[in-house]
Amino acid sequence: MLEMRDMSKIFRTEQVETHALRSFDLHVREGEFVTVTGPSGSGKTTFLNIAGLLDTFSTGAYVLDGQDVSDLDDYARSKLRNRKIGFIFQGFNLLPDLNLFDNLDVPLCYRRLKRAERHQRINDALARVGLASRMKHYPSQLSGGQQQRAAIARALAGHPRLLLADEPTGNLDSQMALEVMDLLQDINRAGSTIVMVTHDPNLASRAQRNVHIVDGRVAEDPADGTIRPRPVEGTA
């Protein structure tokens, strides 16, 4: 489903080059629930940006759902993002000017889907996260947990091949966080591939597979047996 080979990402400023990722290798198979952990500045976010086609990388290769996406232009990457990837953000990122229904409708409209199908998908997705009755509500009228469930519904409505979650519980209290986590696991059991970036070891432990990143490299990955020495302050 997601395959990164020998990937590097270098940020250049006038004075320095920063290697956010170096010889980064990762292979996520269809139906997996992978959590990515690592200390701040380890390259988690960069990984997520590249995995989600939000950002480009410097060298290496990236194959998403069997398609080499290394050399795609902005337009093609936008379209691919729209069709294959669903995002769940730490800050929910619901559009404050639109009600829930319209929030879910936005990515579907970018895909130029027919009206009836959009309605069907939106209703299904909202029902699945238990917000069907809140369709006409605006984000500001919802609690944090409800907002994140709405954001998950938005990602689901697109029937993505890959769900990318960036600290989805970071802005939630522990009760809500557990709810959201349960929801994600349900979704995964229903067949969706999920990659979740987090710094919470408890959450990470609930996934089938936890990939630990340090200094822009995969430091620990049970799938291929990679074990590199961990820094002491790392999560244990």
């Binding site: 939000l54 902005d74 337009y75 379209k79 993002r81 800050g91 990122n93 559009l95 936005v106 970018y110």
Partner: peptide
């Protein structure tokens, strides 16, 4: 800015 970024992440092209 953030909204626009979100839209882009959700698949809006530059043209959109």
């Amino acid at each position: 800015r953030k909204q626009i970024g979100t839209r882009r992440a959700l698949g809006a092209t530059r043209g959109d």
